[in-house]
């Protein structure tokens, strides 16, 4: 056992990038059995593993979608605190429409337009008016939450399950397809074009990026607009699973997404970032939450407090630890 750990440690020192997947695997190995995955026979494993994966993926689909956009934003040295409110507002706008076959031609395009517009507004504030990103999106966070309250009041709107064919997005196949589509587009855009290098350069040194001929303002507006479109996709995933939306739903989502993305190795100051790392970060957070929820259900008398409350403590600790480890590996690399 100790020898095995030593081998793993040596491999990690040679390739620090492997640290995150190894941590994720270790987390899965500890928490998956608690969450009810059985390893007795192949058939048991297939059945319980499928249930577990369905729960995990459908639940974290909105966060994975948002994490893609957040990675790009953090790479440019920006931040978007308004995404939770943005998703809620897009969902609220769609909730005001009649749930019928017409929903697909009225509410859905309007939701997309709404997301794009909100994202473009953020981007314009940040790029054209030169407002610091954290302040601009903090302001729009208030603004959008407030608009949600204006649209929905204190009620909970839950008409999404009546839309024909809508719940498909909340199931495993739908969520997987949405995630795969976002990744195919985002990934190819990222790794097959100059965009990724341009964004990294923007985050590293904005003045140098301008002198290198990168259209700085346009790129920033584009990144935030794409975030708006992704907020629309996340809103669909969320409402298809939950069926309802209220003015306070998804509060604090932005911080969770940032925690996950930073955990995945993206630097908050910009100039470094990885899409795959972000997804692993989201999944780590989701596995943790799921594991603690099941531990609460099956072993509730193990500790003198509710085990689910450990989630906050562990997430905070994990974030600091992840950033600290990343920072050390960057500083040793030069």
């Amino acid at each position: 056992m100790i020898r095995f750990l030593l081998i793993v440690l040596r491999a990690l020192r040679a390739r620090p990038k492997l640290l995150l997947p190894v941590l994720f695997a270790a987390e899965l190995a500890i928490l998956a059995p608690i969450s009810g995955v059985q390893f007795d026979t192949a058939a048991d494993f297939a059945r319980s593993g499928r249930l577990y994966a369905t729960d995990l993926i459908t639940q974290s689909a909105p966060m994975i979608v948002l994490a893609v956009g957040m990675t790009a934003i953090l790479m440019t040295g920006g931040i978007d605190l308004s995404i939770g409110a943005m998703v809620a507002l897009v969902a609220a706008v769609m909730a005001r429409f009649d749930p019928g076959p017409n929903f697909w031609v009225t509410a859905v395009p309007l939701g997309l337009l709404c997301g794009l517009g909100l994202g473009w507004f953020n981007g314009t504030l940040i790029a054209r008016l030169d407002v610091p990103p954290i302040i601009a999106t903090l302001g729009t966070l208030f603004l959008l939450r407030g608009l949600c309250e204006v649209l929905l009041g204190n009620e909970e709107f839950g008409t999404f399950f009546d839309v024909p064919g809508y719940t498909w997005f909340g199931r495993l196949s739908g969520s997987l397809l949405v995630i795969a589509a976002v990744f195919a587009v985002g990934g190819s855009w990222f790794y097959r074009s100059r965009l990724r290098r341009e964004l990294l350069m923007l985050g590293g040194n904005r003045v140098a990026a301008r002198y290198a001929g990168i259209p700085v303002f346009r790129r920033i507006v584009q990144v935030y607009t794409v975030m708006g479109a992704l907020a629309f996709v996340a809103a669909i995933c969320f409402t298809a699973r939950n069926g309802s939306v209220s003015a306070t739903s998804l509060e604090g989502l932005e911080l969770q997404v940032i925690v996950a993305v930073v955990l995945g190795g993206t630097r908050v100051e910009g100039g470094n970032g990885s899409l795959i790392g972000s997804v692993i970060g989201v999944l780590m957070v989701a596995v943790l939450a799921e594991g603690l929820r099941s531990a609460e259900m099956f072993h509730s008398d193990l500790l003198p407090f509710k085990i689910q409350h450990l989630k906050y403590v562990l997430m905070g600790g994990l974030l600091v630890l992840g950033v600290w480890v990343n920072r050390r590996h960057v500083s040793t690399a030069g």
Binding site: L255, I258, V259, F305, K306, H309, L310, K311, Y312, V313, L314, M315, G316, G317, L319, V320
Partner: peptide, 13 residues
């Protein structure tokens, strides 16, 4: 940001 999560957990526990 980590503290925001951590301290709330501490309070609950």
């Amino acid at each position: 940001l980590a503290g925001l999560q951590f301290y709330r957990g501490v309070a609950l526990i």
